[in-house]
């Protein structure tokens, strides 16, 4: 089995605090894998480690068999040309038109003639159904359209690995379904591998091949969508069914209610 992404015994932290502890994770070629967890559990950090924007403290991160920790800047940039990233909220370049956004990487990294760039860009925009907005500025797009344009931009150079950071956040149900379908279609059409970081359980369960659950910097559960759905683990159950209280407490840890309300005896 060839793995597009392979993470072994990874530790990472900002300052003293460890954000990720002993992560082991593989993403086979051609698959669509979701990493789920609550906000702030280290999912986005994990994605940035795969893109080489952060470097692991301990352990290894391999993309297409290459160890990111040992790369110099030039090698890192070469690796990134084969990786597409869809950022939270799209991160379209606000000073460029939709067309220029999608054409950005072709112009930066290839010496293709302008006519060919035009054809390729329009094809990419057509794939997400937004050929009609090519001359608009990102500020003139709705959230869902911006996300689709960003998707077209992320896949502009036909990357081997596509990373999605919260692609479903803040979308209406229709756009959400459209994005979900597009992610699956693009993955299969390009023969790419995709990693999806999300907390949207229902939508991602429909499209992904495999799911990792992260909580407190540790992988607590993993499996195919069916296994996850049927899982009896309390944490997974709480997450999948959206229960307010469970193994993850509703209350942030702190002094007891009695102490906060000034009842000194609570302390004594």
């Amino acid at each position: 089995m060839i793995h597009q992404v392979e993470i072994r015994d990874l530790n990472f932290g900002y300052g003293e605090q460890l954000v990720l502890k002993g992560i082991n994770l593989t993403v086979p070629k051609g698959s669509l894998v979701a990493i789920m967890g609550l906000s702030g559990c280290g999912k986005t950090t994990l994605l940035r480690l795969m893109g080489g924007q952060l470097l692991a403290r301990q352990g290894s991160v391999r993309v297409a068999g290459q160890e990111l920790n040992h790369m110099n800047e030039a090698q890192l940039y070469a690796m990134r040309r084969r990786v597409g990233v869809l950022f939270q909220f799209g991160a379209l370049f606000t000073d460029l038109s939709v067309f220029d956004n999608v054409a950005f990487q072709m112009r930066e990294h290839t010496r293709l003639p302008e006519s060919m760039i035009r054809d390729l860009t329009l094809m990419k925009l057509n794939a997400v159904g937004l050929r009609g907005v090519q001359s608009l500025m990102p500020a003139e797009l709705s959230g869902g359209m911006a996300r689709r344009v960003a998707l077209a931009r992320a896949t502009a150079l036909d990357p081997a690995l596509i990373l999605y950071d919260e692609p479903f956040t803040g979308l209406d149900p229709i756009s959400l379904g459209a994005i979900g379908r597009l992610i699956r279609q693009l993955n299969d059409a390009l023969g790419a591998t995709s990693v999806l970081v999300t907390h949207d359980v229902q939508e991602s369960m429909k499209i992904v091949d495999y799911i990792y659950f992260v909580s407190d910097g540790v992988i607590v559960a993993q499996g195919t969508p069916e296994e996850i759905h049927a899982s009896a683990l309390p944490f997974v159950h709480q997450f999948v069914w959206g229960e307010a209280d469970g193994p993850l407490p509703f209350h942030y840890p702190g002094p007891t209610l009695k102490m906060d309300f000034g009842d000194e005896r609570g302390q004594a």
């Binding site: 924007q53 990134r80 040309r81 990233v85 909220f89 991160a91 370049f93 606000t94 950005f104």
Partner: peptide, 25 residues
Amino acid sequence: AEIGLMKATEQLSAMEMMAVNPLAR
């Protein structure tokens, strides 16, 4: 303001991930 907003909206990160150095571009 422009560069700060580009950073806040992850445009600089996105550029870096597209293998384009934001310092240069």
